[in-house]
Structures are given as structure tokens and as C-alpha cells.
Amino acid sequence: MELFTPDFGLVFWMFIAFILLFLILAKWGWPMIIKQMEGRADTIDKGVEYAREAKEQLDSARDSAQKVIGEAQARQAEMLREAAKMKSQIIEEAKKEASEEARKVMEAAKVSIEQSRKEAELQFRNEVSKFSIDIAEKMVRSRLQNDAEQQKLVDKMLDEIEKN
């Protein structure tokens, strides 16, 4: 049967064609395709791994950011509180200082008033004593025109000294 007897010409050409096909594809075809497919698979694997890691990092970063924000908020609140405290303190101090100053001013004023009062008093007294001495001198002068009277007065003075 012709169908079951291989024809030499066809065997020859098949051999040539197959060898050529094999050489061309083994040199420029299959290794490139296999390398490419495996390289791409590796890249995808790496990409997936990288994405997973990145997500993990992102999660942890988000956590730490949350923490930092929380801390910052707490610190801010504290600072605000402190500022408020400081403000009231400063006001308080200012008030105190002002009142102190006022007091001092008042006191100084008082002192100066007192001083001037005393001076005035002293002056007044001096004036009064001068007037009274003058008056007394005049009176004494008018009264001590006789000796009896002078004796009487001296006695009375002596009595008084003795009594004392």
C-alpha cells in the first residue's frame, strides 16, 4: 500500500524542514519566550509581594501617624491649657503688680501727706507756742507788776514741783 510506505523525498524534506525549524526556533524562539514568561511570572510574584509589604508598611505607617497625631493633639491641648493658665497667671500678676504699685504710690502719697501734715503741725505748733509765749509774756508782764503777786506765783510753782 502506498499509504504505508514512506516516500523518501518527503522524509528527506521533512528532515530538512524540521531541523531548520528546530535550529531557528531553538536559537531565536523558545528560549526567549520561556525566559520572558518566567521573568514576567517572577516580576508578578515580586510585585504581589511588594504590594503586600507596601500595604503592611502603609498600615503601620498609618498607625504610627495616628499615634503621632494623637500625641500632637494631646500636646496641643496641654499647651493650650498651659497658655490659658499662663495668661490668667500673667493677668493675675499684672493685677497684683498694679495694685502693689498703686499701693506704693498711695503709701508714698500718704507719707508725703503725713510729712507735710507733720511739718504743718510743727510749724503750727511753733507758731502757736510762739504766739502763746508772746501772750504769756504779755500776761505775765501785766500780772507781775506787784511783789505779792510775784511771791504767790513762785510759791505756787514750788508747790507744784514738790507735788511732783
Binding site: F8, G9, L10, M14, I24, G29, M32, I33
Partner: peptide
């Protein structure tokens, strides 16, 4: 005769081989 003719089958063989080369190399 000792026969190395490019018969219908041989030509079809070349066409098939060329087609495979073309497909593979276009992917490369």
C-alpha cells in the same frame, strides 16, 4: 527516479514551518 521533488506535501511542510516561525518570531 530518485525523487526529491517539491511535491504538494513538501510545499505544505514548508508553509507550515514558515507559519510556525512567523508566529514564534512575531511573539519574540
Amino acid at each position: 527516479c530518485f525523487d526529491l521533488s517539491i511535491t504538494k506535501n513538501v510545499l505544505a511542510l514548508f508553509i507550515a514551518a514558515a507559519l510556525v516561525i512567523w508566529i514564534v518570531l512575531s511573539l519574540v
